[in-house]
């Protein structure tokens, strides 16, 4: 049995090989450094959320396109989701390795700005195809989407939150403390109803089957038939059409409007590659990057490519009203909104 040969820690210590673990550790830690030293080409380090750089995300398409242009090595570093991304940057502070951060959203940008870690983008921003006016000298949007409740086409959806509260419909949502869409819903209700939000939540309490940690759990529950609707994006049905030729899912248009998620990138003030970082932000709003977005990130590109959107996007609902709180507003009401949500749903 292999484990019979397992030495005790003490034996390991007494054995002539006692330096082995240290040596392995040293080698492991030295590897990245050696790697970097061996590079003649400059390295641009981009921190992003995990799913951006998986094989189904935009990363693998974008990386070669940018590297060809810059003659550099583009390295994505995955760091959980958007909120974890910001938390990691705050842990690392001024000596972060990141040159660019890609994947914060407007719920996070006020806190991100306050860290003082970011530099003005310094690029010429082309006209953006965003449903809202965008002015920001630091954060550059690269894609956006509307939060929405997704349901089966044969389900008769409510027309707004009050309707939903009055209906028997069952929904799954995500916890705002651990999930980006969860926080988005909080902002959505707040943006639409302001001080009446607690009343909306109280009405919704009996429609909420459960609250999940993240988007995946909620969407999985919905697909398993545990609820009529799930909090997701208006673009979600496009995945099912494009990848599965499945036209049975759609999103419910709410007449008070839909809250917007705008995903942004920014460059770090302490970057040792400020030029490359700026080039990357520039590149981000060009066709090679933007065309990759709709069918990998399943979001709307910030600049619609000349070829237009994929066919799968044709059947999606287009909300009449886009709701978005400014970063400062979002931060100011966040804690109140969370308290209201907790109070209403903890009853």
């Amino acid at each position: 049995m292999p484990f019979c040969a397992c030495p005790l820690l003490s034996d390991l210590w007494e054995s002539p090989m006692r330096r082995t673990p240290l040596a392995i550790f040293a080698a492991l830690t030295a590897l990245p450094a050696l790697h970097a030293a061996a590079q003649e080409t400059p390295v641009l380090t981009v921190y992003t959320y995990d799913s951006f750089d998986t094989e189904w995300g935009p990363g693998p398409r974008i990386e070669p396109a940018f590297e060809e242009r810059c003659g550099c090595d583009l390295q994505f570093v995955g760091a959980g989701d958007g909120a974890a991304l910001l938390a990691r940057l705050r842990l690392e502070g001024g000596n972060t390795d990141a040159d660019v951060v890609l994947g914060l959203d407007t719920a996070l940008t006020a806190a991100a700005r306050d860290t003082g870690l970011f530099a003005p983008h310094g690029i010429e921003v082309p006209p953006l195809d965003l449903p809202v006016d965008w002015q920001d000298d630091t954060f550059v949007p690269f894609d956006w989407g509307y939060f929405a409740f997704v349901h089966a086409r044969d389900f008769d959806p409510p027309a707004n939150f009050r309707d939903l509260a009055d209906s028997e419909a069952q929904v799954v949502i995500q916890d705002p403390r651990s999930s980006t869409p969860g926080l988005g819903l909080l902002m959505w209700v707040k943006a639409a109803y302001g001080d009446a939000a607690p009343e909306i939540w109280e009405g919704l309490a009996d429609n909420i089957v459960t609250v999940t940690k993240g988007w995946s759990e909620a969407y999985g529950l919905f697909l398993d038939g545990e609820a009529d609707m799930v909090l997701s994006y208006t673009t979600s049905p496009a995945y099912h059409v494009a990848a599965e030729a499945d036209d049975t899912k759609t999103a419910a248009p709410f007449d008070e409007g839909h809250y917007l998620q705008v995903e942004v990138a920014a460059r770090l003030a302490g970057s040792d590659q400020p030029e490359l970082a700026r080039d990357f932000l520039d590149f981000m709003l060009t066709a090679p990057f933007q065309t990759a977005i709709p069918e990998t990130n399943w979001m709307y590109p910030a600049v619609t490519p000349e070829a237009g959107l994929p066919a799968a996007y044709d059947g999606l609902i287009r909300p009449g009203t886009a709701l978005l709180l400014s970063p400062d507003e979002a931060r100011a009401i966040r804690d109140t909104a969370l308290d209201e949500w907790l109070t209403a749903l903890s009853r």
Binding site: A87, R90, R177, T210, V211, T212, K213
Partner: peptide, 29 residues
Amino acid sequence: SFAVALTLGGGPRATTVELAIYQAFRFEF
């Protein structure tokens, strides 16, 4: 436990310490 408690607990009534830690770290830093 965190995800199990929250998902099957049916909502924020089932907030565990680990979720509070998530909140402290991600939400409030």
